[in-house]
Design a protein around this nucleic acid. Structure first.
Lengths: 128, 128
DNA sequence: CCGGATCCGGTCTGATACTG
DNA sequence: CAGTATCAGACCGGATCCGG
């Protein structure tokens, strides 16, 4: 119930970020974990929950489940069952989610240039 | 003392984000407010504390002060006194901070395309 | 086992009040 | 004007639990 009762950012609410696109985007991906999930789906080819949970950054499972829900609610990812008994889902980016690629690329580019020790991504990731 | 005792992300610590550039960048700008401050400095020409506090998103003053400190510690901004009696500081982006422009631009581009009602930034902001 | 859901302690956020 | 203090409540993250 803790995660479910999180404060919503609804139109008219004090916290509603206005029409600035940067601000609006940050309402969706402006936290430490969401973009890491997107990165794993976009660049690392992950699709299953267990693969996502296995990230280098050790995302807690409750956080992962919560972010997957929010990403789905924001139409950045879809989940489709790939087996029954028990039902298991594969998570994939929607076109809307895929479109975040340039954002991730620019972040990676900045990191490679300005943060020592970061690993350069393979070139195929840096191209459309 | 609350803000000062925040958990540090030091090399060797469990929480240290590894060499992934995206992850490392998110350690610096991966929260809801930091990039908004950068946006104000980069696109809106703000320099003074009071201008930054006046953002549309109503950033709380304690959060603003905290983010300015962290941005300075990360060498993304500098503060220089622009008057004495009393000493007042102007905050400006360093080259390292200015270099985040492509990230902000891609975020704004994504927002304009995929979030209804976001305002398009003037073209001069979208060019180097 | 896998994919989460629940619990819980501690941390952080953010509204407001306050100070020099 | 440029921050600092305070404090309740939101949120994170580790551990654990549970249904299929």
């Amino acid at each position: 119930m803790t995660m479910k009762t999180m404060k919503q950012r609804v139109p008219g609410h004090d916290c509603m970020r206005s029409a600035c696109p940067v601000s609006s985007v940050l309402d969706i991906i402006g936290d430490k974990w969401t973009l890491l999930v997107v990165r794993d789906l976009l660049f690392l080819g992950k699709r299953m929950y267990s693969e996502l949970a296995d990230s280098m950054e050790k995302i807690p499972t409750n956080i992962l489940a919560d972010r997957l829900k929010k990403l789905e609610a924001a139409n950045l990812i879809e989940k489709k069952p790939y087996q029954d008994k028990p039902v298991r889902y594969a998570y994939t980016l929607t076109a809307r989610g895929e479109a975040l690629r340039p954002v991730l690329i620019e972040m990676a580019t900045w990191g490679n240039e300005y943060i020592a020790g970061t690993v350069k991504a393979p070139k195929e990731f840096m191209e459309r």
